[in-house]
C-alpha cells in the first residue's frame, strides 16, 4: 500500500515540477506580457495543485492535508487576481511599453 502511495506522490510531484519548469521557460521566452502571464498562471495553478496532490498521501493527519489544500486554494485566488490586474495594467499602458501586445 505504501509503495502505491509513494508512486502516486512521485508521479504527481514530478508532473507538478514539469508544469513549474514549463511555466518558467514560458515566462522567460514568451514575447509579451499577456502570453507570459498565460505561462505563469499554469505554473501556479496546475504545478502547485499537482505538488499538493502528490504530497497528500504523505501527510500525517487530516488537518495537515486540509491546510495544504487551503494553501493551494489561496494561491489560486491570489494568482488569478494578480494576473488579471497585471493584464489590465498592460492593456491600459498599451503596446510599446515593455513590448506588451494590445
Amino acid at each position: 500500500m505504501s509503495v502505491v502511495l509513494d508512486l502516486i506522490t512521485i508521479a504527481a510531484v514530478s508532473a507538478g515540477v514539469v508544469f513549474f519548469l514549463a511555466g518558467t521557460v514560458g515566462l522567460l521566452r514568451f514575447p509579451d506580457t499577456l502570453t507570459r502571464l498565460h505561462a505563469l498562471t499554469k505554473a501556479d495553478n496546475l504545478g502547485l495543485g499537482l505538488v499538493v496532490l502528490g504530497l497528500l498521501p504523505q501527510v500525517g493527519s487530516l488537518r495537515d492535508g486540509l491546510k495544504m489544500i487551503c494553501v493551494w486554494l489561496l494561491v489560486l485566488l491570489a494568482g488569478a487576481t494578480v494576473s488579471q490586474l497585471v493584464a489590465q495594467a498592460a492593456r491600459r499602458d498599451g503596446p510599446g511599453s515593455d513590448g506588451a501586445a494590445p
Binding site: L74, L77, A78, A80, T81, Q84, L85, Q88
Partner: peptide, 14 residues
Amino acid sequence: EGPLVLLARVLPPV
C-alpha cells in the same frame, strides 16, 4: 466589478 474588489471581499474573512 473587477478582480481587486472581488479579492477584497473574499480574502479578508480568511
